[in-house]
Amino acid sequence: MAMMNFFEYAGRPFVGILEEFGRVMLLFLSAAVWAFRPPFRLRQVFKQMEAVGVNSLPVVLITAVSSGMVLALQSYYGFRMFGGESLVGATVALSMTREIGPVFTALMVTGRAGSAMAAEIGTMRVKEQIDALYAMSVNPVQFLVMPRVLAGMVTLPVLTVVSDFIGIVGGYFVGGQLLGINSGVFMARIYEMLDLNDIFNGLIKAVCFGLILSVVSCYKGFYTTGGAEGVGRAATQAVVISTVSIFISDFFLTAVMF
């Protein structure tokens, strides 16, 4: 009996995670179904695209430009040891488009918009506003979740493109202007090493991350319980779970694509 108890205790969290994963998938599926049913709620989608995309732009820009600059600086010290300074540009460009662009953008958006999504929907849940939506014959998944998921999937690649570009510009500034790497060689190396596929695969990642962070955040908000405290907990958990999921999925996406 004691043995059974031990296994039960060990297995419970695992089963819990699986259960939760299943519920997240269900929410996503119902959001996907509602995306194709009228009314299409473009106004809501646009509102969320503004909240997730446009409003995240400044923080994404700052992150991108500083990571591009740091990347250039750090790789320069490494490459200089064997005279490969000209590879700095390519290193920055490849890292930005393949990894840093999509991942950092997703993390910043999670912190900014994901937590807001969870808090907003969570507040609506504890203040009976979701019940009110049902009572007024409006499906809350379509009204609240679908626009956010769609906005996440559309705006993340856009933000990532901007982030890629700004990161490379930052690297160019540091490498070409401050460290004195020939800017022609710097750019030539980028064009030589960077493939269009690097950019596009990065964008596919971004779409996946946008999906993950918005579904997870909406899920956490949608099933909030326990008043104002619960809303806070939902927001925190949304960020933590989204972040971890983004990193895990990043590994698998990278393994599949590159």
Partner: peptide, 11 residues
């Protein structure tokens, strides 16, 4: 339906 705290949409 009138909810307990009115449940007006804050946004």
């Amino acid at each position: 339906m009138l909810f307990q705290d009115a449940a007006l949409f804050d946004s």
